[in-house]
Design a protein around this nucleic acid. Structure first.
Lengths: 197, 197
DNA sequence: TTTTTGTTAGACAAAATTGTTAAAATAAAA
DNA sequence: TTTTATTTTAACAATTTTGTCTAACAAAAA
């Protein structure tokens, strides 16, 4: 029994993801999602039964994708610094496409997050934290609780992108100038987190 | 014609603020807000006419309060470093009480933010940025676009608090341990942003 | 072709949420 | 105490949003 699979299901998921995590329409209605995807609203119920289940689906997809890519970085055979540079690159790319993904996770954590949080692999994170501790011993990064190191990294990466709609008017910079600032941040963050030789 | 002013209006505002910005119930219904405040839902309409106007009101209050306190710090007569320490203290206190305030601003920027963004005083920010540039010349902080410096500061302060619901399970730390980590961050951030002598 | 399976669309029902109106309760002033 | 303005409440109307049901449609299999 082959499915016809005209790609509608994936189209709906992609559209919802773009709308929610990309454009920040965190409470887009089923109608809005359907319109954006160019399908009848019923299709949405046909494939996902309910709005919540659609959201759950795209959320699970997104988390799995990101966590997989991060784990790859963290478990690679590179040096700690290169590893960190890779994490930055992966994260920045993801954040720029879907800036509201984490915001959504946090605000909806009571509805959807609780189940998902159990799924988070903290194995690779644990091992990355251990490596960070080693680096501190070696003196290449500042001594602190390694959790701080990781929080610093994620903060410096994510926050400016999330806050872009506020920062652009606040700092009176154009879209283009702001994009340039964001592009600079990769190197800047490495510079800030690693000691000079 | 004196108003009775039993404090209901303020009670509704405080409750809504706590619910939305404190607990992150970003789309609390008027019923939920009324229940939490222990008043009839109609009271909410009586004082604010509509849900949107209530939200606008608490939001404006919150922004004004924070921006005023920040401006005070930025315009004080202290040295740049002390000034920065004060900003950190003010910001941390605010973030801990209302972690979702900024998240809300960002996600609702199209609905409420646009009008408010005009109101943001960027005068004190400008002057603080200039001071930062001076410090870079003096060599007390790393050379970079001063906007980066400010974004770094805000990021390191805000993001871990926003992400707390995710980080606690991810790093497997208890509420108490996490609170301790947050408390450590003030000094840690200063350490990270200012060069050692 | 007919049947079967899977997909899409329109009409409708149900639920949730907001907003209005008019009346009752309350407290201060005359 | 009556009057008056304000505050609170209950009932209801309107709107928005979600979810269901049935029929039409399309494509592959019999």
């Amino acid at each position: 029994m082959p499915l016809k699979n005209t790609g509608t299901e994936q189209l709906i998921k992609d559209t919802a993801k773009q709308l929610l995590f990309g454009e920040g329409k965190l409470h887009a209605t089923t109608q809005e999602i359907a319109d954006a995807a160019g399908v009848n609203r019923t299709a949405l119920h046909y494939y996902f039964r309910s709005r919540d289940q659609l959201i759950s689906a795209i959320f699970q997809d997104a988390m799995q994708g990101l966590s997989q890519r991060l784990d790859e970085c963290m478990l690679s055979e590179e040096s700690f610094k290169v590893k960190t540079e890779n994490i930055i690159a992966v994260f920045l790319r993801d954040m720029l496409r879907f800036p509201y993904q984490e915001t959504f996770l946090i605000t909806e954590i009571n509805t959807f997050g609780k189940k998902l949080i159990g799924n988070i692999q903290s194995g690779p994170v644990k091992s990355y934290l251990k490596e960070a501790a080693n680096e501190m011993e070696k003196g290449t990064i500042e001594k602190m609780n390694p959790i701080h190191f990781l929080m610093n990294l994620f903060s410096l990466l994510s926050y400016p992108i999330i806050m872009a709609p506020l920062y652009k008017p606040l700092f009176r910079v154009s879209e283009k100038e702001f994009q340039k600032l964001i592009d600079e941040r990769g190197k800047l963050i490495i510079n800030l987190l690693f000691k000079k030789k």
